[in-house]
Amino acid sequence: MADLPDRTGPSDPTRRRLLGLFATSSAGIALAGTGLAPIAFPEAAAAQGKQRQWVMVIDLRKCDGCGDCTTACQTEHELPKNFEWIKVFEVKDERGGSYFMPRPCFQCENAPCLRVCPVAATFRDDEGVVLVDQERCIGCRMCMAACPYGARYFNYVEPPEPKHPFHKPTPQFPVPQQQGTVGKCMFCVHRTDDGKLPACLEACGMEAIYIGDLVEDIATNGNETVRLSRFLKDNDAYRYKEDLGTGPRVYYIAGHGQHLDN
C-alpha cells in the first residue's frame, strides 16, 4: 500500500473523509458514484494569523506580452520550453486590434480538474491553491481534458537535468517534474510560504500582475498595495469563462495595453 505523500502544512481533511468512505463501503474496489462536490473547503477564518486565500489580479492595461513571466516560471521550476504554466495569449478582437492575456492556472474554487481525478492526486490546500501530487498521479490526463483553460501540462518527456539533484519534489515545490505525470502553475506556494512574491510577478516589468489575499482583502504587485475588493470594483475586473461555474481565483482588468505609454 503506497504511503500518503509527505505534505508540508495542514493535511486535507476531506481526503481522509473520502478515504474513510471508500474503506467502509467495499473491500478494495471503488464505488461508482456521480459528481460529488469537489473537495470541500475549510471555512476561511477572519484574518486570524495569516490564513490566506490567494487570488491574482492581472491588469491587461499594462501587459505588453513580453513573456518574462513565462520565462521566470520556467526557470524557477526547471521546466522544459513548451511548459507554459503561465501562458501569454495574444487575443485578437474583431476590429483587428489585439491585446495580451497572461493565463496562469486559475486555482478554481469549483475546479473541474479536482472533480475528475481518479486518485485525488490533485487537491486544494487550505490557502485555495490547487496542487498536484506527482507521486500519486497515474497520468490518465483526465484533468487535462476537463480543464476549460488548458492550464495543465503533461510531462511527456523526461524533464531537463535537475539543478538540485538531492531535492525531493513536493506538491508545493514540484521540482523536478516527474515524467508521466501532470504539472501546472501553483501560485508559487513554495515562495509565498517563505514570504516571497511569485516568480512571474517579480519578473513582470510592467507590474501588471497582482497577488492578493481574499481574507485580508489586499493585493500587491510588489510596488503598489491596494484594497482588493475596491480595486476589483473600481476597475470592473472580470474572470474568464466564469459562467462555466468554475469560480476562478484570477481576475482580469480589461485593457489592451493602454497604460504602457505611461
Binding site: 509565498t192 514570504g195 516571497k196 497577488i211 492578493g212 489575499d213 485580508e216 498595495t225 491596494v226
Partner: peptide
C-alpha cells in the same frame, strides 16, 4: 503584512 510590510492605499 503582505510579503513584507506594505502600506495599502
Amino acid at each position: 503584512d503582505l510579503f513584507g510590510e506594505r502600506e495599502m492605499y
